[in-house]
Design a binder for these strands. Sequence first.
DNA 1: CCATTATATAGCATATATACTATGTACTAT
DNA 2: ATAGTACATAGTATATATGCTATATAATGG
Lengths: 103, 103
Amino acid sequence: MTKKRLVRGVDPAMLKRAADIIKLLGHPERLKIVESLDGGELSVSAICEICDLEQAICSQHLSRLRRHKVVLSRKDGQHVLYRVVEPKVHHILECIRQCDVKR
Amino acid sequence: MTKKRLVRGVDPAMLKRAADIIKLLGHPERLKIVESLDGGELSVSAICEICDLEQAICSQHLSRLRRHKVVLSRKDGQHVLYRVVEPKVHHILECIRQCDVKR
DNA sequence: CCATTATATAGCATATATACTATGTACTAT
DNA sequence: ATAGTACATAGTATATATGCTATATAATGG
């Protein structure tokens, strides 16, 4: 059942997809954004405020996250609400939660 | 106990460190490398073979992983053995293990 | 229609990352 | 000393990512 070395066996496309998402989240501001969205949907302006980001920057990050299907958006009146749809995000958020034991 | 929005509260240095590590692992070959090391120490040549990488490329990746304290190395005769020391790696490896439910 | 609010995108200079090739160093065996 | 194996690093051209500023679009209120 447990193959000793499964690296070769990992589907390259899947590996690439995982790497792309991980790299995308490897940025402090995007990490803050997805973390802020962990509690549920938020509008762009709410994200800007919570994460202390300027509108344009925030929108650019959200745009990239959207392109990679990490988040989805929907209109709600004059607002646009975002939410996380990529399950890998949860694993990655663990990285900023483990309160680094060492010190 | 559960603060509504903890993003602002996240220590910026810790967030940066997490993002750096996540970004570093957001690369297919480095992801393969840390995955191959998940079973324990391996020499550079073993990693090259398992991950199907050229020596120079592999060494460069290992060098970056070492600089960021994601892995540690030790000499063993004419070989150099590497191992993972950064705990966040385990969370990230989860990303390539969850067998994407959707399809 | 006009102004305002909310969000998205374009254009661009600068910084980082990647991939390659070549070369350097350390250890072992002869 | 010499040669071979195992790693590490330098140098560099090319590609990507980032941060900014300005501008564009969409919905709402008056």
